[in-house]
């Protein structure tokens, strides 16, 4: 089962780097989803490893929360895009020193 966990870690890391390097807010969001999915994979793997369904329940809750988060996040992105005509996360950088 270790290979699943390693795959999960790799996907998580790729998601991380994506969040840090991509500038399109929607792609950044996709990378976050990728990280969440990687976590889900680990949870499901551990569920099988331990013969216990709690991991699957946790993954399910992650999906629910991710759905809610995507709804709000995309709405925010839309609002920003509507006023600033830009979906770049670097453009929303007025709140600084």
């Amino acid at each position: 089962m270790t290979e699943y966990i390693v795959l999960s870690a790799i996907l998580f890391t790729i998601g991380c780097v994506g969040v840090l390097t991509r500038r399109n807010a929607i792609v950044v969001f996709m990378c976050i989803e990728l990280m969440l999915n990687a976590c889900n994979l680990a949870l499901v793997t551990f569920a099988k490893q331990h013969g216990n369904l709690d991991g699957q329940i946790a993954a399910f809750f992650v999906m629910v929360v991710a759905a809610a988060e995507v709804v709000i996040g995309l709405a925010i992105i839309m609002t920003i895009f509507r006023t600033r005509r830009s979906a770049s996360v670097d453009d929303a950088s007025l709140l600084k020193y």
């Binding site: 270790t2 966990i5 390693v6 998580f12 890391t13 991380c16 840090l20 490893q49």
Partner: peptide, 23 residues
């Protein structure tokens, strides 16, 4: 990112999970 991936993979590969219980 590479460091994190390397650390995670290295650490995880050293873990012996044992036989899966199965669902």
């Amino acid at each position: 990112g590479l460091a994190l991936g390397a650390v995670l993979v290295t650490a995880l590969s050293q873990v012996t999970l044992g036989t899966a219980v199965g669902l």
